[in-house]
């Protein structure tokens, strides 16, 4: 089983927003980062993976199984962390564990207490007194205590301070050590991904722009800077989007080899960060 999650041609329509024909595969044993602006469809896609939403068309498969016949088996194998606290606010962690633990066949109480200790979480304080970071740690402790094979996280780092974000990323890397776990997480803070993501899926306006390895992203995409007079209708086709200024142009390409052929040494090429890519795509695609 190479793909843990498979979305095949998935569509979902809402009033004023829709997810269009998404094909997304999440590879086992790797970290896949799911990026996109706010409102691009990240949460909707994750909800379809969790069967909180059902697609209008297309197939959703996890571990090669579908939700119609294997809902419980699938969810048994998923650990989830959402951007807001989904646990009953007035309860303390001990009671939340009492509610959640019996739902899982493979719940591991020793493991849970190890994480509670590691994250320095109080068991007897109500969860609404927790800081944002502590709430995230609590969700994570629960998500990790039933030997989940797939960890799905929706914006886990949103609203966290940089130090805690680093800690989290280190923790996620530790989880990846045994090679069987898969992590899928959405974020709009792309610097989180530069460090640890193996694959990047990029969604914009309900459509998947690309889903590829971080190497392919850095090899295909680049920032190109040069003199305005180098641009004409033909040469512009090499770019996703061009910003013009009186001092020159700056553009994003998704085909570095083509740009090298066309412009040679007349332009400056730089590595495009994920943020650059998101920013230029927002400007619209000139060619398809």
């Amino acid at each position: 089983m190479e793909n843990v999650v498979e979305l095949i041609n998935v569509s979902k329509k809402f009033k004023g927003f829709s997810i269009k024909n998404i094909d997304l595969h999440v590879k086992q044993g790797f970290v896949t980062g799911f990026i996109g602006a706010n409102g691009a469809g990240k949460s909707t896609t994750i909800k379809m993976m969790m069967n909180l939403l059902r697609p209008d068309a297309g197939e959703v498969k996890l571990f090669g199984l579908d939700y119609q016949t294997n809902e419980k088996d699938i969810k048994e194998r998923i650990g989830f962390v959402y951007d807001s606290n989904v646990f009953f606010e007035g309860l303390n962690l001990k009671d939340i564990k009492r509610i959640v633990a019996p739902a899982y066949r493979r719940w591991d109480d020793t493991l849970f207490h190890q994480y509670v200790e590691k994250f320095e979480l109080p068991l007897n304080k109500s969860i609404k007194t927790f800081s944002k970071g502590m709430q995230m740690k609590a969700s994570l402790a629960i998500a990790l205590s039933h030997h989940a094979e797939l960890i799905i996280m929706d914006e886990p780092t949103a609203g966290l301070d940089p130090i805690f974000r680093r800690e989290l990323l280190g923790l996620l890397q530790e989880l990846m050590l045994d090679g069987t776990r898969t992590i899928f997480f959405s974020t709009h803070i792309t610097t989180d991904l530069d460090r640890i993501a193996d694959y990047i899926a990029f969604i914009q306006r309900g459509e998947l722009v690309f889903s590829k390895s971080i190497h392919d992203v850095t090899e295909d995409y680049a920032l190109v800077k040069g003199r305005i007079d180098l641009l004409d209708r033909d040469t512009e086709k090499a770019f996703v989007h061009v910003h013009r200024a009186p001092t020159g142009f700056e553009a994003l390409t998704d085909n570095t080899t083509e740009v090298k052929e066309i412009f040679g040494d007349t332009v400056v090429m730089e590595r495009a960060s994920l943020e650059d890519i998101m920013y230029y795509f927002k400007g619209g695609i000139h060619h398809v």
Binding site: G170, M176, I196, D198
Partner: peptide, 19 residues
């Protein structure tokens, strides 16, 4: 070191050490 261990130690992605 295994590529996963190396990735963790260097704080980089597994796919990078794999490559």
């Amino acid at each position: 070191p295994s590529m996963r261990q190396l990735a963790k130690d260097l704080q980089i992605s597994v796919i990078t050490t794999k490559r």
